[in-house]
Simulated scan of single mutants.
Amino acid sequence: MSAHIKSGGLIISGDNEVREDGLFLLGASALLDYVSASLVTFSDAWMSYDLKGRAQPAVHAANASRLAAALRDLSEALGSETDPDDPTYFGKPTDTGIDNYFDRDGAASDVWGSFEIPYRYSNFTHAPGFGRIGYARSADGEVQYIPVHGEHGLLGYLWASDAENAASFEPRDVGNEECYEVGLLWLDRLRSAHDRGLSPSQALAALADLTDGNGLDTLSLPTLRKLASGG
């Protein structure tokens, strides 16, 4: 059996303490006589360099020792040694925290740009599941599209192609949290439209009423992607 709970926490930045929701995931599991606990963090504040490879000595100095203390206290409370898990593409867990990756030239690796951005973008270009559930998310020919705006400006483009049974959202900046989350919301809406039996163009027409765009236009998908990226 196993159980997990997400917890918020404080990140120290300069003279400020910022509370972040979902900062940790604390888990426990039991199998026969073996009991273990795990602590997962969703922040790079404990690292010498952030996930983009930028030095953050003040942030690291203010926070790394706090994570080390939490791991030590957890180990003592459970009467068990800390056993770092396998490395992820974000960093390498240690007994006291997390180490960065470094390139051959000694510079800290930009793992955000190398791994997280492509992973996020793949959500918009590849339909999920072995059967490619829902509309296809890529097209070779022209697509109809409409811009989607948010509070801070253009977030991306909603597009559809009946000829290739395809429809998706092309994000303006997948690294931007607002843009990414809004994009995922539009993918969910497209999936619902597909499940209702709407063609891609019918789905686009229905969902266009939920945007503040100025009407449908047509472009090739590669050109639309360049437009979204600012090219």
Rank of each mutant, 00 (worst) to 15 (best):
N176M: 00
G91D: 14
N100C: 12
E20M: 14
L74Q: 01
V143H: 07
F130V: 15
I5Y: 04
P222S: 03
A160V: 11
S168W: 04
H194T: 07
D15W: 03
A167I: 04
G213V: 07
A64Y: 08
D73E: 08
S109E: 11
H152E: 14
H194Y: 15
A136N: 13
R104W: 06
L74V: 05
F115T: 03
A108P: 07
V174R: 12
S201Q: 02
H4Q: 13
F115R: 07
D103A: 09
G183L: 01
G230M: 00
L39A: 08
W46T: 13
R137P: 02
Y121A: 15
G22D: 09
A69H: 02
G215Q: 03
L198A: 14
L224T: 05
L207G: 12
A108F: 04
S48A: 08
L216A: 10
D50C: 05
S75W: 01
L23M: 15
R72T: 09
A58F: 10
E164L: 05
I5L: 11
D173V: 04
N123R: 14
A3V: 00
L185I: 08
L32P: 00
E170I: 01
S192L: 02
L198F: 13
M47P: 02
A205P: 02
H4S: 10
L184G: 13
D85I: 00
S109V: 00
N63W: 03
D85G: 13
G27W: 04
V111E: 03
N176R: 04
W186Q: 01
G9K: 08
Y180P: 01
D173K: 07
I98G: 03
H60Y: 15
Q202C: 06
L219F: 03
L26H: 03
F102W: 01
Y34A: 12
T223S: 15
E81C: 05
F169T: 09
G230Y: 00
A208F: 05
G183V: 04
G91R: 06
L51A: 05
A139V: 04
L31P: 04
Y157M: 12
D73L: 08
V111C: 03
D99Q: 13
T41H: 05
F90Y: 11
S2F: 04
V35M: 02
D15T: 09
R54Q: 11
G153E: 08
F169L: 08
L10R: 09
A206Q: 15
S201R: 00
V182Q: 09
E164T: 07
S192T: 02
Y180W: 10
S122N: 12
A136S: 13
H152C: 02
G230W: 00
D50W: 00
A208S: 11
H126F: 14
L32M: 08
A62D: 10
I11Q: 07
Y89I: 07
R172D: 02
G8H: 06
V182M: 02
S29W: 05
E181V: 13
T211C: 05
E170P: 03
A228R: 07
